[in-house]
């Protein structure tokens, strides 16, 4: 899910600064409705100084349309360096990797077999041979929550922010967790019986990469179309140049009497073809689009599930599937 950008509203960004600086160890106090007095030491002070000594500063959050001169070290305005810096300090400080367990309540009961079968038929149908058979055994399911900033580099640069919850091991996007993350509660402490090691070799990197690629498709289409226009213009120019050049070489070749001269011209023509191809390739490469995801957070989210065996009688195969009580869905291994 692509997270929309926030409009620069001074009070909102001010609240963020207060929360962030306090998290980083600073002490904040409002000296006016748009001025935040900060006493910072250590990491928080590195917003202003490199040596992390104590800093006593007042941040000003002027209206976005203010047109007076800006003080980049004391004012927070659209595009200002301070916003970048405080965000980056948090990225470095905060835990990027973690694991948590969803709290679905105590006394979780297995699903009724008929209800589970119906859900299986509605969700899976005939895509997989077989049906779930009981008994339902308590087990665990894991999803990975990813927060990633995607840097799309084309003729110009675009940044976007994505939040995705991906079911393991299949990598399917869990819409409920992705969209309604803030509505869920988590167990405290994290149960020790969760088999985290089961998911450590799931190929999370590739799953995340594919999921992000799918999530930025809409943005990519427009960027690709634009790139194509640029590329077409450049290729036309190169093609025209080499067409004319090759034609001239051929004309000259036909005017040569000696075999040796004609051969030399042929070499030049072949070299021109090769150069033409190289230049085209070069332009195509220049117009490639590169997407660099930067992971800001990656959290494994475990939740209780009910395991069942899927038996396909004719094929004599057995598979395992898990029923998730959270969203009443099946996940097949």
């Amino acid at each position: 899910m692509k997270l929309p950008k926030s409009r620069h509203e001074p009070d909102k960004v001010a609240r963020f600064f207060q929360e962030a600086l306090e998290k980083l160890g600073g002490i904040c106090e409002w000296s006016w409705h748009d001025r935040l007095h900060v006493l910072a030491e250590g990491t928080a002070a590195s917003l202003w100084t490199a040596n992390e000594s104590v800093v006593d500063a007042e941040l000003h959050f002027p209206p976005s349309d203010a047109s007076g001169p800006r003080r980049a070290d004391r004012e927070v305005f659209p595009g200002c360096p301070l916003t970048f810096r405080v965000a980056e300090l948090l990225h470095a400080e905060e835990v990027q990797y973690g694991r948590a367990c969803l709290d679905l309540g105590a006394n979780l009961k297995p699903p009724a077999p008929e209800a589970a079968q119906k859900q299986w038929e509605a969700q899976i149908g005939r895509k997989i041979a077989g049906k779930p058979t009981g008994p339902y055994v308590q087990d665990w399911h894991c999803s990975v929550l990813v927060l990633a900033r995607c840097d799309v580099q084309a003729i110009d640069q675009h940044w976007s922010l994505h939040r995705l919850a991906l079911s393991l091991p299949d990598g399917r996007v869990d819409e409920d967790l992705t969209s309604n993350l803030s509505l869920h509660a988590f167990k405290s402490p994290v149960p020790s019986e969760i088999p985290w090691s089961r998911w450590s070799d799931c190929g999370v990197t590739e799953i995340v990469r594919q999921a992000l690629r799918d999530d930025i498709q809409t943005d990519l289409k427009a960027i690709q179309a634009r790139q194509r226009r640029y590329l077409e213009r450049e290729l036309d120019r190169i093609d025209q140049y080499f067409r004319d050049y090759t034609r001239e070489l051929r004309q000259r070749q036909t005017r040569q009497r000696r075999q040796e001269s004609q051969s030399r011209y042929q070499e030049r023509i072949d070299a021109a073809k090769a150069e033409h191809e190289r230049r085209r390739q070069d332009q195509v490469q220049r117009h490639e689009i590169h997407v660099y995801p930067h992971i800001d957070a990656l959290i494994f989210l475990a939740e209780p599930a009910w395991r069942a065996e899927i038996v396909a009688p004719r094929e004599e195969t057995r598979r395992t599937a898990r029923f998730l009580p959270r969203n009443r869905r099946w996940v097949v291994e």
Binding site: K5, F16, E19, T83, F84, A87, L147, R149, L161
Partner: peptide
């Protein structure tokens, strides 16, 4: 909080 920071950064 980290998500907010990333959002403001972008």
């Amino acid at each position: 909080l980290l998500e907010k920071a990333s959002r403001w950064w972008v």
